[in-house]
Amino acid sequence: MKSGSNLEKVLKAGHFAFTGELGPPRGCDVEEVKEKAQHLKGNVDSVNITDNQTAMVRMSSWAASLILLQEGLEPNFQMVCRDRNRLAMQADILGAYAHGIRNMLCLSGDHQKFGDHPMAKGVFDIDSIQLISMVKNMRDNGTFLSGAELHGIPKMFIGAASNPFADPFEWRVHRLAKKVEAGCDFIQTQCIYNMEKFREFIKQANDMGLTEKTYILAGVTPMKSVGMAKYMKNKVPGMDVPDEIIKRLQGAEKGKVADEGIKFACEQIEEFKEMKGVHGVHMMAIEWEHKVPEIAERAKVLPRPVVD
């Protein structure tokens, strides 16, 4: 065991993992975190806690992660490169581990221009792949990035993101390979809608042996409405929403669009369960945490495994 986190245990035991996501509040309301967490409890193996997602200031990821721990859920502490330099990152990794956080997701972070402080100085002291390498080095070699020795080693289960749909498509699998080489233990992908392209991506990853070196969790976000689908298609960079999906949602009965979105998500999950090289699903039910129990039920991923 690298970290002994629940997520690692579930994956190592060969179960099909199911992870969730929780965005911390735009304030210090603990109840808001607890409310969202209760919908996820028992329905997912680990919960990603976003780090100033879309460059909007929120309660810090590690702090909200601690609330999750107190509530009996396992957090996956997200860390972006936009807001901290290498000193702050390493300090937060140590602090997070000291308080019981065992999973980390290493990300570049959306550019600050998209958020509520567009003229902020973006730090990007190191990039996401360098961050993966830094966390791995802390864990496996017991040293800081500087090479100095750590006293007490943070044994994190190291995650990273992968977007199979951004351009150029042929390059994506090689960037995944760089992340694997840098030391990531698991990957959570961008939301998948274009299944055909994803099958091709996973085939490439299988052919390169990457899926034997890292666990791949396929990203799923159920569509709530036609408007959301169109927004994702047209406004979110690197997102690939085929027209068929939009047509399918448009064809749903009145008041049943969200249901159709969940139905599509469940069909995806069924396929992922059988897909070679896919080890689980990362469910990003954005501001839809209360729907996760229903989605998990319909996707037949319950009960979640308990691994000692």
């Binding site: 550019h111 600050q112 221009k113 003229m119 902020a120 100085k121 973006g122």
Partner: peptide
């Protein structure tokens, strides 16, 4: 605080 203009 400064409105940084050199971030893009």
């Amino acid at each position: 605080p400064v409105e940084w203009n050199d971030q893009i």
